[in-house]
Nucleic acid binder design. Structure first.
Lengths: 208, 208
DNA sequence: CCATTATTCAACACTTTGTCGATTAAAATG
DNA sequence: CATTTTAATCGACAAAGTGTTGAATAATGG
């Protein structure tokens, strides 16, 4: 991946456009952003935009690619099944801590793009990464699908989307918890499931 | 809500626009659809569009409102906590069956809008409906938050997004399961959680 | 049948788009 | 430092989309 170092000017232009895009998405949503909006905000010539990108979605795609590589690296080390089956102490699974640390480092990007005004396809791509990883591991660890309560397909759909949901809510909360704390929350939920997490034995049903 | 019955012509126009919009979203995604695209596809005059809607997002909003009412009615009868805490037999929670029946009745709409090319805000709105409902019930059923493994906030983020994930995957699979079957899958996952669903006791770890 | 109203049609000014050639400014190179 | 290379700017362009208008036409409801 060691490509030629880019001209300082193009680096500056791309950086300004990235920043302008994130700001504008937050302000008016991913649609409704024109090339002129971007270049006005970034204070560059409109023609310059077309020297680097085809259109607004293309710019977004290029920016996404930057973070995908790092994300893929972490997710590929994530053994959700190991988390489910092995870890017994009340400690967060380390790779999940790393995941949230990485997300936090690129918070300006993820906070905007995983928000309601962001880009649905980003969340889907992350989900897809997790799903592939999980399917590969699951086929080895539990080859007898008939022993499972639900088939792999549905378990994966369930788990990946709940994980994304926790990530999205973490940013929506303004990253209220530390990577360690939120990883612990996720670990507990995955290991115990939602039902046991409410502590059924101590419920106070209104009338019963 | 018993408003004046609409002129046949406006009913026809709105129906054609709805159909055209869903087709075009599927073909080219929610962005990139122009008013001209819509009116060409619907075979109506471009000016007619503006007699009913302000712009493309406005049309989408109006169409969404149609199904929200019905959805809200079902979700308000959904006691996810009851599902978690009470039901012990291996039967799907009835309200979830109803939910999937309703989704199936409006499959043309949900299939497109919950897909990758669809509208992120629809899924978020449904999640929000579920979250409000769940928070209200949870505060009554488990007033002592400190007894829970994770706080209400995170439990709700986890549960609602996993539910949306199952719904999205159901449409992505071409509604491969019946409402009863998919409701059973969801019931099992919510009650047992992902970890127990893989049947940990019978795992075959590669080397261990 | 008639009054009402939705739709059509052509036209309007305006914005955005994508591209282009010529010019200017900055960076890389030796 | 001087020279070459390349990025950015500028103005202009046709094409397409936007949102609105007023007059003509057609369908509807009573």
């Amino acid at each position: 991946m060691a490509t030629k170092p880019e001209d300082r000017r193009t680096v500056r232009t791309k950086k300004l456009l990235r920043q302008a895009l994130l700001e504008l998405i937050e302000e008016k949503g991913i649609d409704r952003i024109t090339v002129r909006d971007l270049t006005d905000r970034a204070e560059i010539n409109r023609g310059t935009f077309y020297l680097h990108y085809q259109d607004v979605p293309d710019l977004l795609d290029k920016i996404k690619e930057e973070v995908f590589a790092g994300l893929q690296a972490i997710i590929s080390r994530m053994y959700i099944i190991r988390l489910m089956a092995e870890t017994n102490e009340d400690k967060p699974y380390e790779v999940i801590v790393e995941l949230f640390e990485y997300l936090g480092e690129h918070a300006d990007f993820f906070r905007v793009l995983l928000s309601p005004k962001g880009d649905i396809s980003l969340a889907l791509r992350i989900k897809d990464m997790m799903a592939r990883q999980m399917m590969a591991k699951l086929e080895i660890w539990q080859p007898r699908e008939e022993l499972m309560l639900v088939s792999r397909e549905w378990l994966i759909a369930y788990t990946t989307s709940s994980n994304i949901g926790i990530i999205q809510h973490w940013f929506a909360s303004g990253q209220a918890l530390s990577p360690y704390e939120i990883a612990l929350v996720m670990t507990r939920l995955v290991k115990n499931g939602p039902a046991r997490s409410i502590n059924v034995e101590h419920l106070s049903p209104p009338e019963k």
